[in-house]
Design a protein around this nucleic acid. Structure first.
Length: 602
RNA sequence: GGUGGCAUAGCUCAGCUGGAUAGAGCACCUGCCUUCUAAGCAGGCGGUCCUAGGUUCGAAUCCUAGUGCCAUCACCA
């Protein structure tokens, strides 16, 4: 692990020092810094020194300066074998030996690029956090995949990570489902109906809303104003009463609440398992919704908050460019913000080693989190500096926003089933797996189908919204999960074939020069560790997805143009298999960061 | 109205802290399976980087203004 770092770091550092030295000796001037970039494909070279910025220090023609610099570097730096100058760009050609030496340093470490965990750098990642009155849908899928993946990426960057969610298990929404079930359920249970628990409860939520809506229409027809009707419809009033009873601890209501939530959790667990996400710790809002009040009282005393005449408590954030925000109702009950303050503090108590938190929540709550983080800072918690809202765009359908109340959602379970079915159909058409057992096939279809779905969602920048068209199925060709999985499977096939050719590719090997495609691949491998850090800094799985796609494209090009088993001497064959193997390992590591599995065959 | 986000090829998206002729995939068109997996490879077609100014040797990228879409601004969560 140290070795590759030394090499990648060293070449730029060495070059930078040498460039400065050259400018000093040729032009008697001191350069503050040197700008490097990878050489573009259409030009000859590996690394490029940009001459333009030097013109501020050194007067002259950029091409001539480049020529002089190039000659100096070629003489002084062993790894530089040649150079050329185009306009103000000095392209340096690095020796094959440089790349071969680098490859040797990473060849035997299967976890290349991943940084070992350091315990005093823990972070908590919250994601999912569903309501318990309806099943998970496509929006939750994006949330779950993002949260899970970012957690994995942070781990790979050396952090200890706790994955968590806060389950929204109380409130008027669940009362609505409970009420509808009481009235129309006839004692139905997941067992009696064969439905997943979350689906069953979700159906009653929809039922509630249809009854509620017809009540509103009836009231409006009687001449009552719509806004009033919405508040006074009998079902809603009834649900609100139920919430009060729940808060008062009414035995019957609490028992029903427990039972129905239990159904939902069973259903959720099935969905999470299929999705491949997990959690280290669960928080329930019914436990935490009273937290935070003490801190409001505390803040009130410190003068961070103030009380209005009616008794409600507020914070004035106008000096920070935001508005006033309520933190406690006039009747003394908590609002969302109160809970979130309390929950954050609770988490740090539960896990004293964390010094940061990531909240995976849609961008419609940008404002809420801005305020929350600011309040925690003002309350003086040192860890408040390390909070991050992982904000992501909505997943919209061509018809607009998904609405559970109206049933216009893409259900998470259904979607995963569909993707698996598509994978099956394509696989059967290709007919490469006829010798597989049925159970192996089913497993594989799931890997591929979910791979397609996950990659499709994770490859786009989190902050951008996604338009999902259920009519046009997710692709399996081109920049897709299956394309990358296919390449992985192909590499495994190469390794299996190696033994047929009597090659022990694990032996060490010596090669002296590289094919253009081999060099390109090693270059790609070289930037994997940086890519992980970039992804971690930006909380962006898309960075990983795009990287691994580029790597795979390079590999396929290599694969089709450079024969591995034919026509080459033994040493070369072994080297190429080792190279393929390393690419396979990096694909697997990358996909693990995205929560996607890789198949041995497909 | 205030605030925040987004705007790149017909469609879906890359483009790192400003750098060379703006890149991929899908779709459409051409080639490549008697040799390692063709879910692949090689190539073609396709762009006023929303508009207008500005900063710079250099702007898709930074600044200002405008346009469009989305979100948000509740004693809802």
């Amino acid at each position: 692990m140290q070795a590759y770092k030394r090499i990648t770091m060293s070449i730029q550092t060495v070059l930078e020092a040498k460039v400065k030295e050259a400018i000093l000796s040729i032009f008697k001037a001191e350069l503050p810094s040197v700008e490097f970039q990878p050489t573009r494909k259409d030009f000859d070279g590996d690394i490029t020194v940009v001459v333009f910025p030097m013109l501020r220090i050194v007067k002259g023609n950029p091409v001539q300066i480049g020529e002089q610099l190039g000659a100096f570097l070629k003489d002084e730096v062993a790894a530089v074998t040649d150079f050329n100058v185009v306009k103000g760009f000095l392209n340096l050609v690095l020796s094959d030996t440089f790349y071969i030496d680098f490859f040797k340093t990473i060849c035997d470490s299967p976890d290349y690029g991943l940084v070992a965990e350091s315990a005093h750098n823990a972070v908590m990642v919250e994601y999912s956090s569903p309501n318990t009155n309806k099943p998970l849908h496509l929006g939750h899928i994006r949330n779950n995949l993002l949260g899970y993946s970012v957690a994995e990426i942070l781990k790979a960057a050396g952090k200890k990570v706790y994955k968590t969610q806060i389950i929204n298990d109380r409130g008027i929404h669940i009362c609505k489902s409970m009420l509808a079930w009481q009235r129309y359920g006839n004692g139905e249970t997941p067992k009696s109906t064969g439905l997943k628990g979350d689906k069953l409860v979700g159906n009653y939520y929809v039922k509630f809303n249809s009854v509620y809506n017809s009540e509103i229409e009836a009231l409006v027809a009687e001449g009552i104003e719509r806004k009033v009707a919405e508040k006074e419809a009998p079902s809603l009033v009834e649900a609100q009463k139920m919430l009060l009873k729940w808060e008062a601890g009414d035995k019957e209501i609490v028992a029903l609440w427990k039972e129905m939530n239990g159904w939902v959790y069973e259903g959720f667990n099935v969905t999470y398992k299929n999705m491949g996400v997990d959690f280290d710790k669960l928080y329930y809002e019914s436990d935490t919704y009273l937290l935070g009040k003490d801190f409001v009282a505390d803040g009130l005393q410190k003068g961070i908050f103030y009380k209005k005449e009616d008794g409600s408590v507020w914070i004035d954030l106008t000096e920070d460019g935001l508005d006033e925000k309520i933190v406690l109702r006039s009747d003394g009950t908590a609002v969302y913000m109160t809970q979130d303050i309390g929950t954050a503090i609770q988490r740090v108590k539960d896990y004293p080693d964390i010094n940061g938190m990531v909240y995976t929540v849609g961008n419609e709550q940008d404002y809420h989190f801005k305020v929350l983080f600011l309040i925690l800072k003002k309350l003086g918690f040192p860890w408040a500096e390390q909070l991050h809202h992982l904000s992501y765009g909505m997943v919209d359908l061509p018809s607009g926003k998904m609405k559970s109340r109206e049933g216009t959602v893409v259900d998470a379970d259904d979607l995963m089933v569909d993707m698996t079915a598509t994978a099956k159909q394509i696989s059967e058409e290709l007919g490469k797996l006829d010798d597989y057992a049925d159970s192996e096939k089913e497993e594989l279809y799931k890997t591929i189908g979910l791979g397609a779905l996950k990659y499709y969602i994770l490859k786009v920048d989190p902050k951008k919204r996604i338009l999902f068209n259920p009519e046009e199925s997710v692709d399996f060709q081109g920049n897709t999960g299956p394309f990358i999985q296919y390449t992985f499977a192909r590499i495994q096939s190469v390794k299996r074939n190696a033994s047929d050719h009597g090659l022990n590719w694990k032996n060490s090997t010596e090669v002296e020069d590289l094919h253009k495609k081999e060099k390109e691949l090693i270059k790609q491998l070289l930037i994997f560790p940086d890519t992980i850090h970039l992804a971690a800094e930006n909380y962006s799985p898309a960075v990983i997805a795009n990287y691994v796609y580029d790597l795979v494209k390079s590999f396929n090009s290599f694969y089709q143009q450079v024969p591995i088993f034919v026509d080459a001497e033994e040493e070369k064959k072994v080297f190429r298999i080792q190279l393929a193997n390393k690419v396979g390992e990096v694909i697997e590591s990358s996909f693990k960061l995205l929560g996607i599995q890789v198949p041995q065959r497909m």
